[in-house]
Simulated assay, not measured.
Amino acid sequence: MRLLARVILPLGLAVGVLTAATACSGGAPSPAPSTKPTSDAKSIAPEPTTTPPSSDTPATPPASMSCETLIPSDTVAALHKQGWAAMKRDFAFGPDPVPGGIECLWSDPAIASDRGLLYGWAPIAGAEAKTRQEQLVASGWIREDSARGVYITADPRASLSQDEDGYGMTYLFGPGWVTVSDTKQGLVLIDPQG
């Protein structure tokens, strides 16, 4: 039931994607970074700080990775039942695509609106991963280290859509890969291995 509620929430997806594009290109103003997001509307509990896993070798993308296999089949079925379809594109930081990556924008193709869901995965490691994290933080995104990896999330004051914990568009950098979703909670659905 929680999944269906999440699927039908209106999102500022176009603004979130634009925010991501401008964040890496340096086009957005840079508010002072902090160690965790803050929001006037919600309080966010930080995850315990640990040393995140690292890798100098990018993960190998699964041969069968698609918008239909990037997230669980029951989520895909629920989205199709709603009349939604996925628009596949390259995973990119601003204008820079990441080879082997995928981003999927799920929405109702018959309606032009800002309602939709974003899920993405790409292989990335070492210096490139570190550089992308630093670029996002320098553009006002907020870094959080956790046992799962490094979260880089949009400043909640600039996010039109947020999850229950106040997180908007968020990247998760793990050992050899990065994922992205329109909210931090959406990241738990991404599993390119199926």
Rank of each mutant, 00 (worst) to 15 (best):
P33M: 00
P99G: 04
E47V: 11
A21C: 14
G27F: 08
S55D: 07
A21H: 03
I44L: 15
R115F: 15
F93R: 09
V7W: 14
G116S: 00
G166K: 06
P10E: 02
E144R: 15
S146H: 11
L3K: 12
A122P: 09
T179L: 03
Q185C: 08
T183G: 10
T49L: 08
V76P: 08
W106K: 10
L9A: 13
Q133G: 00
R148E: 14
T38E: 14
D191K: 07
A20R: 06
E134Q: 13
W84N: 07
L4K: 15
S25K: 11
A158M: 11
V76M: 09
P46D: 03
A45K: 13
D40V: 15
V150D: 11
R89N: 05
S39P: 01
L70A: 08
A129W: 01
G166E: 09
T60S: 13
G168K: 04
E103K: 13
T75K: 12
A41D: 12
I71K: 11
L13D: 01
Q193S: 15
G140M: 05
G12P: 05
T75A: 13
P33R: 10
D90Q: 12
P97Q: 04
I152K: 05
L160K: 12
L160E: 07
P52H: 09
F93I: 03
T69M: 04
G140S: 06
R115V: 13
K81P: 02
A63S: 14
